[in-house]
């Protein structure tokens, strides 16, 4: 592998955060920590998508100078992954808020956030 650039570093960070999130979802017992792990998983995935859209030595896809407005395609990074990540962040927010409200409801029901106390769907 040749010189390590910003795209490799951010990709590696994305993978690490995603793995941390997965580990948290599988092994934590506190419901709030599980919800946090879901957001970590989301964040890692978003970082990976943005890192894949990065192109070396190119600038943000915002055409605010006259120089960028000619021959745009050879000067900017990929705008599509960024737009998709914007959608993904908003949906992640919706999912997280729903999960937190479920957690709140569960806590009001049994006064416990320990996942092992909830055996209703276990057999």
């Amino acid at each position: 592998m040749e010189k390590i650039g910003i795209e490799q570093i951010s990709l590696a960070f994305g993978f690490i955060i995603l793995m941390l999130g997965l580990w948290g979802i599988l092994s934590r017992k506190n419901i709030i920590k599980i919800v946090l792990s879901f957001t970590l998983f989301d964040t890692g995935l978003n970082i990976i998508i943005v890192a894949i859209g990065y192109l070396k030595n190119k600038t943000a896809p915002i055409l605010d100078s006259a120089e960028l407005q000619t021959d745009t395609a050879s000067k900017i990074v990929d705008p599509l992954p960024q737009a998709l990540v914007l959608t993904s962040i908003v949906i992640g927010l919706g999912v997280t808020s729903l999960l937190l409200v479920y957690a709140l409801k569960l806590y009001k029901e049994k006064k416990s956030l320990f996942i092992n106390d909830y055996k209703d769907l276990k057999w």
Partner: peptide, 28 residues
């Protein structure tokens, strides 16, 4: 993973024609 050098496919279209077709300075 090998970093790509150029825009491909639909992203290339967005970058080349976004200014004429949509007219927004922020391509995202």
């Amino acid at each position: 993973y090998t970093p790509s050098e150029d825009l491909k496919g639909v992203s290339k279209h967005y970058a080349e024609y976004g200014k004429e077709e949509v007219g927004a300075a922020n391509l995202v």
